[in-house]
């Protein structure tokens, strides 16, 4: 049962990381109706900026400053690129962010090389938090989860308890009316875009040190973040959290399951037949781990198109 506990914990931490990146995206997606393909690129930039800054201002300094720089990049992208093409419709915005994600990836390769960089957890944080069944559980994973949880609570309070939060939530729902009530909605959009980018940058700065920091990290995570936003529901922070944890745990658990459908058939004495048929029936669950989130997305789109907790129909 220990592996189960560890798998669930790893899944939750990975889910929390997914949440950190998708929190900004779901707000941007919900507000502007634009699927920002470059969002995961902000995650990657966070990791690389933190890597570069680490040598000069230390690990904690880098974790703090990198997201701010990424947020500034986000503001520039919104103000000078996205806003200009906004009038031509979503397709243009989508293509713009799509192109941007390639440009960022190529720039990263240009400056840092097409291989992982040596961005690691500082020695002072590389210890075990506790042991589960004789295995040490790294404190850094706990820290990553903690950062994500703190972020969730902070955004939640900001959105529900402050005037800025009320304006953001209204602008997601009815931007034109929010503007007619005297709120500078374009500025709100820019702010949300910047904060969303900064949060993705923070996730990258924190997670890049634990997983690997390489030019493909945006691509790897980007697709999963997309799934989270669709499953969780447009503009819903709670939905993003729920979907992130769900996908994180499902992925993590399925990696550890060394069974296939033929084992199910074995219960009815049909193992030989199932193995004879082969194909899907003998495919191990662990090898489908990467596909399960997409199957979940497909299912959600079919039965609940606005997502688990989406506010917009």
């Amino acid at each position: 049962m220990d592996w189960l506990l560890v798998s669930v914990m790893n899944g939750v931490v990975y889910g929390l990381l997914l949440f950190m990146v998708s929190a900004g995206l779901t707000l941007i997606f919900g507000m502007m109706g634009v699927l920002n393909f470059a969002h995961a690129s902000f995650y990657m930039l966070g990791a690389y900026f933190a890597f570069s800054l680490q040598a000069r201002i230390g690990f904690w300094g880098a974790i703090l400053v990198a997201p701010i720089i990424v947020g500034a990049v986000g503001v520039v992208v919104e103000r000078y690129f996205l806003r200009r093409v906004h009038q031509y419709g979503h397709a243009h915005e989508l293509l713009l962010t799509f192109g941007l994600s390639f440009m960022i990836a190529e720039l990263v390769k240009l400056f840092y090389g097409n291989y992982p960089v040596n961005y690691r957890i500082p020695g002072s944080l590389d210890f075990a938090a506790f042991a589960v069944g004789g295995l040490d559980y790294p404190a850094y994973r706990v820290l990553m989860g903690g950062v994500a949880m703190a972020m969730f609570v902070l955004i939640y309070l900001l959105l529900t308890r402050t005037r800025v939060g009320i304006i953001v939530r209204s602008a997601i729902y009815k931007p034109r009316m929010a503007e007619a009530l005297g709120h500078n909605v374009p500025l709100v959009f820019m702010g949300v875009f910047g904060v969303g980018a900064a949060l993705a940058g923070l996730a990258g700065a924190v997670a890049g040190a634990f997983y690997t920091t390489n030019p493909n990290m945006a691509l790897e995570l980007g697709v999963m973040v997309f799934v989270v936003v669709v499953v969780g529901g447009l503009g819903s922070l709670g939905g993003a959290m729920l979907a992130s944890i769900l996908i994180g745990t499902i992925t993590s658990l399925s990696v550890g399951i060394d069974a296939s459908l033929s084992d199910l058939f074995a219960l009815f004495g049909a193992r030989q037949w199932a193995e004879g048929v082969g194909g899907l029936l003998t495919l191990k669950v662990s090898s489908t781990a990467g596909t399960i989130p997409f199957a979940l997305m497909l299912l959600i789109l079919l039965v609940r198109p606005h997502g688990l907790l989406g506010e917009k129909g």
């Binding site: 729902y173 034109r176 503007e179």
Partner: peptide, 30 residues
């Protein structure tokens, strides 16, 4: 529109445009 509102013109649309996801009090605070 936001500058026009801040200058002193308020608009009550026919469609009402209530923020359904906000409470009545939050709508008023908007």
């Amino acid at each position: 529109p936001y500058e026009i509102c801040r200058a002193g013109i308020a608009y009550v649309p026919e469609e009402r445009e209530i923020f359904a996801n906000l409470t009545v009090e939050e709508n008023l605070r908007m």
